[in-house]
Amino acid sequence: MKTVVFSGTTEGRIFSKELAALGADVLVSVATPLGAEEQGSLSGITVHCGRLTPEEMADLLKGADLCVDATHPYAVDATKNIAAACKTAQIEYHRLLRAESPLPAGSMVFQSAMHAAEFLAGTQGNVLLATGAKELAAFSRIDPARLFPRVLPTLDSIAACEAAHIPHKNILAMQGPFSYALNRALMEQFHIRFLVTKDGGAAGGFAEKAQAAQDMGAQLVVLRRPAENGETAAQILARCKEALGWSH
């Protein structure tokens, strides 16, 4: 059985390895070299690296029996394109969901980065942006000197920070997920009053960020997760076992 897994996430890496262990032929598609590096190499798994158009996704799916979308919960466009490509290629599609996190009392929740930025523009104090480089433009109305973006250590991420006029001393280029101790240390070091994050669940280290914010007396600002339908890894693996002829 050939399965294509669109990944670049912790749960995608775990799922693809579990699937390969069952004897499936797994093709993992990741958007960036960093995603390929994290995926690593394993028998039964082939990695395709590079961003794909919906048409290229459909080509990649040719000959596959099943497709699993394990992209990030906030990667709405990617999920839409993958689902459309599966429809075009007439491939069975499954969306792997990441469990949501319970939000601590006192959390401020906004529909988008833009809405969060509107609120922050009327406040004072330093802001730790743990929302990724792609969201930086939304915070352009806030004094860059207040912003401390935590971004991936890639040239594209640094370039996005520079385009947003973030002072170099404010750029925190590192790869997560991060421990409670590191989150707290960064907030203490840079006198953070607001922590802006997505609900990345356990895989994204959400609880460690939330606890650090609470203990440092900082306001937790959460970008609402897009609503979606899907299945757990266990449910999709059961379907894969069925396709492979395994008994439950």
Rank of each mutant, 00 (worst) to 15 (best):
V5F: 09
F6D: 03
S7K: 13
T10L: 10
E11N: 11
S16H: 00
L19S: 10
L19E: 01
A20F: 02
A20V: 08
A21R: 12
G23I: 03
D25Y: 00
V28F: 08
T32Q: 13
T32E: 05
P33L: 05
A36N: 01
S41W: 02
G44F: 06
G44K: 04
I45W: 06
I45R: 08
T53E: 09
E56S: 09
E56W: 01
L60F: 01
L60A: 14
L60T: 10
L61R: 10
G63A: 04
L66G: 03
V68C: 04
T71I: 10
Y74H: 09
A75M: 03
T79L: 01
N81M: 11
T88M: 11
I91F: 06
I91W: 04
E92D: 15
H94P: 02
R95C: 11
L96H: 06
R98F: 01
A99E: 15
P102Y: 01
A105W: 02
V109H: 00
F110G: 07
S112E: 00
M114V: 11
M114E: 13
A116T: 01
A121D: 13
N126H: 14
V127D: 05
L128P: 14
A133T: 04
K134C: 12
L136Y: 02
A137D: 12
S140W: 00
A145K: 15
A145C: 08
A145M: 08
V151E: 06
L152N: 07
P153N: 10
I158M: 09
A159M: 00
A159E: 14
E162R: 15
A163W: 03
A163C: 06
P167D: 03
P167Y: 04
K169E: 15
K169F: 01
L172Q: 14
L172T: 07
L172I: 15
L172F: 04
A173D: 02
A173S: 10
A173K: 07
Q175S: 15
Q175T: 11
G176Y: 00
S179V: 01
S179E: 04
S179L: 11
A181Y: 01
A181M: 12
A185F: 09
Q189R: 15
H191C: 08
R193D: 10
T197G: 11
D199I: 02
D199R: 11
G205W: 06
A207Y: 04
E208R: 04
A210M: 12
Q214F: 01
M216Q: 07
G217P: 11
V221I: 15
R225L: 15
P226I: 01
P226Y: 00
E228V: 04
E228R: 07
N229D: 13
E231S: 12
A233V: 04
A234G: 05
A243T: 02
G245L: 05
